[in-house]
Amino acid sequence: MNIKNNKISLPGSRSFRTYAVVLVYIVLMGIFMITAPRAFLDYKIYMAFLSTVPISLVMALGLTFVIIAGEIDLSFCSVMAFSGFIFTYIFINTGSTILAFIASLAAGAVAGFINGIIVAKVKVPSIIATLGTQFFWAGLAVVLSSGRSLIINEIRPSLLYKIFVGRIGGIVPAQAIWAFGIAIILSFILNKHRFGESVMFIGDNRETARMMGVNVDKTLIQIFMLSGVLAAFSSVLLACEMVTWWSTQGPGYLLITIAAVFIGGTSIYGGEGTIFGTVVGAFIIGSITAGIVASGVGGFWTQLVVGLVLLSAVFINTFISKRRT
């Protein structure tokens, strides 16, 4: 009987937290439907979200693992710029989308591996380590490209282009399916795989995780590699969607991606967080700009509103955590 009691999601339970973020999203959409009915009652704007949000969402998924482990990755946006360069450069020079794709993911994996080594083995706090590699990879991308943009119109007829950013049924952007697919897989990995469990225990208490037999260093390296590979994958989606790569594409994604993870309820203290929350968080962030512009209040308001939403989401989460204990 007490078992049944525990299954009910009372305020303060983990699932209530995820409801909270959905509630924020619904309220936001409700406001936009009132202030900009023309745009927000039309399905087209949601298709637009499905084409733009996946870029930051894919990175936010990797970042969720990093933050649950009690670490931070500030370099993913530069890794994205760098591996995007690798993708477009190799495609331009070889004409092979497959080669370009694999090389790009490999670049992301290497960048993540380096982060992981610096954090896990050299024991540099991740905020400093990844700040350093953020500058490094962004700088390398600028140096290698001489700051020029690369245009890849020739990629349009390729199969890879259709698979990654084609429109399913002429309407639904394929990248959304990829982002959701990855989210579902990662949600299983976080909740039902040994790796995900290790991530949560590491974020909860590193000493405990080690005493329980978790290979902390190895897992940390894997987490940063996951973040790197997902940044690379996101760079491929962006390069295909825009058929362009430009050297300064990274920084614009840094803060909105981090914000998406925190709005989604993942704890800065580590040990807990959900993939579902991050997905909703990414859509909240991704909708705000469009909503504000469509409401006619002017783009200047965007940052202010993002700030308010982030603060209220974090406030709700903190409030819930306090009630629980």
Binding site: F188, H193, R194, F195, M200, D204, T208, A209, M212, G213
Partner: peptide, 25 residues
């Protein structure tokens, strides 16, 4: 520090020695 505070009991019992399949699930 014998247990992960934010984790469920069942995870705490089996962490490091999970009952899992070939793929680690």
């Amino acid at each position: 520090k014998a247990l992960g505070e934010k984790q469920s009991l069942w995870r705490n019992i089996f962490i490091g020695r999970q009952i899992s399949n070939f793929f680690g699930f």
